[in-house]
Amino acid sequence: MTESTAEKVQEERRDLLKWLLGGSLVAWIASVAYPILAYLQPPKQNEVAVQSIKAGKLSEIELDSGRIVKFGTKPVILIRTNTNELKAFTATCTHLDCTVQYSKEKGIIWCACHNGQYDLTGRNIGGPPPKPLEEFRVLIQEDEVLISKNT
């Protein structure tokens, strides 16, 4: 009688342990496998390459226009002049860090915050900016416009 109960208890315990072991093993595998599988999911965003960036297709950039592109964590302004030249400068105004834009009417780079003006070589020609804009190099590969740091 007592032996059989003891055995029964033993049996029950074994079952419990089996469940515990199995369950925690599954939980463990899940907690290890989940991060790894998630890690292997390619991220939505393209991988960074900050030495140079693709700024879009040349055919999509209008003549006599400018656009802001992201260069790493900094904005860069790409300008296609009315003489069909491509120019790129850092788009951070040297006055108070606003983002500059291309002014079609005047043919200059212009900052909306305090009317800072730069000519198309990046030189500060009017308003408060104390320094010229840093120029970037623009390359065209087939139809792709590439902007890279001027080294």
Partner: peptide, 20 residues
Amino acid sequence: LIASFAITLLAVSLYLLIRR
């Protein structure tokens, strides 16, 4: 916390297994 709990649980059950 969750992963740590899973690991601890597995460790405890392993310990019980060894004892048995």
